[in-house]
Amino acid sequence: MELLLASAIGIMTAAGIYLVLRLRTFPVILGISLLTYAVNVFLFTSGRVAVGAPPVLRDDITVYTDPLPQALVLTAIVISFGMTAVVVMIGLGAFLGSDDDHVDDCPDVPQDPPEGTS
């Protein structure tokens, strides 16, 4: 089971990085989403995984999974929505403003000599 989880994390990370390296905003956003999944699952597994032991206290049960990573990941999931929305908005604003959804600006080489040189 650990192998499955780890490989899922690895594959999602690889796909996420590949998409983040694309040149248009939309695949980059999808790539970031994939990376978010990978990171969230990774953080979740930092509590070590167990089947059938949810951290909801019951009288006759003594084995629970680690609740702390779950709490952290829960807020991370919600915040990642906020972050995705902001990035989408920025990408959208850039596209609507310039009719261009490339993520890379031209390399930033100064064209004019800096002010004050004689």
Partner: peptide
Amino acid sequence: GLASFALAY
């Protein structure tokens, strides 16, 4: 991907 796989595993 390989790095994160190895780390997680």
